[in-house]
Structures are given as C-alpha cells and as structure tokens.
Simulated scan of single mutants.
Amino acid sequence: MDRTVTVIVLICCSTQVCGAQRRTRALYPSVFRVKRGTPSLVSPIFQNSIEDINLLFEILLAGVQMEDEHSPFSIQDEELNSLRRTQKLQVICDDVVPRKLTDIRHLTSELLRQPLVLRREDFERTVLTLVYAAHRMLSAAGHQRDAWTESFLDLYKAIKQDLTAQ
C-alpha cells in the first residue's frame, strides 16, 4: 500500500513539473535559445529594481525602433542606448520576444487558454510583446493592421487577466 502511494505521488509531481516546463516553453520558447549566451543572459529579465522600471519607462518615452521581425531593437536616444543596463533589454527584444504575427497569436492563445498568474519574467516579456505589437499595428495598413490590432487587444486582455488574478 505504501509503495502505491509513493508511485502516485511521483506521477503527480512529474506531471506538474512537465506541465510547468511545457507551459514555459510554450510561452517563450526562444528564451532557451538566446543567441548571446552569456551566463547572466541565460534567462534574461530586465526589471530587477525600481531603477530598472524607471529606465524602461524612460526608454519607451524616448522612443524605440522595432520595425519588423528582422530589424534589430534599437533605442533612439544615444545616451540611453549606450548604457550597459540596456544590453539585456536589447537581447530580450531581439532574441526572446516573439516578432512574427503567427508566434504572437500562438502566445496569446496560450495566455488566454490557461488563466494562470504569470511569472515576473513572462509578464515582462508579454508587456514588451504588447509594445512591439503596438509598433507594428501603427505602421501596418489594411488587413495587416487589423491582424496586428487583434493581437494587440489579445495581449492587453492577457495582461489585464493576469493583473486581476493576483
């Protein structure tokens, strides 16, 4: 009897671990393939302090370039762009945040299907994906603009869902 309980507990634990790993990979699979693989960028996150949050706000206010899925992320303000702390943000935006419409639709589908509280790094990546979708939405026309608008709204719903779940 004791052995049966142990087996059941092991099966439940492994199912939860596999489910959690699958959930992370499904949201941001590119985080495991960061091109600039320094140890500090294995699972990059930009916001580690209030100063980082303020810097991100300042960067977004100053302006960023995220034209399409092939162009690199760049900060328009040269002084902000030269800061060492912005390197992680550039890696996250270039290598982790999805930039193809199909990838963003897959992400929003995953986010809206299972309403869980996002981990801090997943929340940050979702907000950065929302910013990217807003850029693409404004520069697109016709049917493409409608598709980007729909993705933007779905990302907004996912973020709102996460904020109200806490």
Score class of each variant (00 low, 15 high):
residue 166 Q to G: 10
residue 146 D to H: 13
residue 3 R to K: 15
residue 89 L to R: 04
residue 144 Q to W: 13
residue 96 V to P: 00
residue 116 L to W: 13
residue 166 Q to N: 11
residue 107 L to A: 06
residue 127 V to S: 08
residue 148 W to L: 03
residue 67 E to A: 14
residue 151 S to C: 12
residue 79 E to I: 09
residue 26 A to P: 01
residue 135 H to Q: 13
residue 86 T to H: 03
residue 117 V to P: 00
residue 131 V to N: 06
residue 163 L to G: 00
residue 54 N to L: 11
residue 154 D to L: 09
residue 70 H to S: 08
residue 114 Q to P: 00
residue 133 A to C: 12
residue 149 T to L: 12
residue 86 T to N: 06
residue 5 V to P: 00
residue 57 F to E: 08
residue 120 R to V: 06
residue 149 T to R: 14
residue 80 L to F: 02
residue 8 I to E: 11
residue 137 M to A: 04
residue 133 A to N: 09
residue 101 L to A: 03
residue 8 I to N: 12
residue 16 Q to P: 00
residue 103 D to S: 14
residue 64 V to S: 00
residue 62 A to F: 03
residue 29 P to W: 06
residue 44 P to V: 03
residue 109 S to E: 13
residue 38 T to Q: 13
residue 41 L to N: 03
residue 89 L to N: 06
residue 116 L to T: 11
residue 134 A to D: 15
residue 94 D to P: 05
residue 8 I to M: 14
residue 160 K to L: 12
residue 56 L to C: 10
residue 121 E to W: 08
residue 133 A to D: 03
residue 81 N to G: 05
residue 8 I to T: 13
residue 51 E to G: 02
residue 44 P to L: 06
residue 28 Y to V: 11
residue 122 D to S: 10
residue 22 R to T: 13
residue 90 Q to E: 12
residue 165 A to C: 14
residue 54 N to Y: 07
residue 68 D to G: 08
residue 147 A to Y: 02
residue 43 S to L: 15
residue 13 C to Q: 11
residue 149 T to G: 03
residue 3 R to E: 10
residue 165 A to I: 14
residue 14 S to L: 11
residue 162 D to N: 12
residue 146 D to K: 08
residue 48 N to L: 07
residue 44 P to N: 04
residue 142 G to D: 04
residue 140 A to N: 10
residue 28 Y to D: 10
residue 147 A to N: 14
residue 79 E to L: 11
residue 123 F to R: 07
residue 25 R to C: 09
residue 109 S to L: 04
residue 158 A to H: 07
residue 92 I to H: 01
residue 126 T to N: 03
residue 55 L to M: 14
residue 164 T to K: 15
residue 56 L to M: 14
residue 92 I to C: 06
residue 39 P to G: 01
residue 130 L to Y: 13
residue 51 E to A: 15
residue 99 R to Q: 10
residue 76 Q to P: 01
residue 13 C to P: 02
residue 5 V to S: 10
residue 79 E to Y: 06
residue 122 D to L: 02
residue 122 D to F: 00
residue 49 S to H: 04
residue 125 R to M: 09
residue 134 A to T: 13
residue 66 M to Y: 02
residue 84 R to V: 09
residue 50 I to Q: 12
residue 89 L to I: 11
residue 133 A to P: 01
residue 49 S to A: 13
residue 95 D to P: 04
residue 42 V to F: 13
residue 36 R to I: 07
residue 137 M to V: 05
residue 166 Q to D: 00
residue 29 P to N: 09
residue 82 S to E: 12
residue 142 G to N: 05
residue 97 V to C: 14
residue 93 C to K: 02
residue 122 D to H: 05
residue 130 L to H: 14
residue 60 L to G: 03
residue 132 Y to G: 05
residue 3 R to M: 13
residue 101 L to K: 02
residue 150 E to T: 14
residue 162 D to S: 10
residue 85 R to N: 10
residue 155 L to R: 04
residue 71 S to F: 00
residue 31 V to T: 12
residue 140 A to H: 05
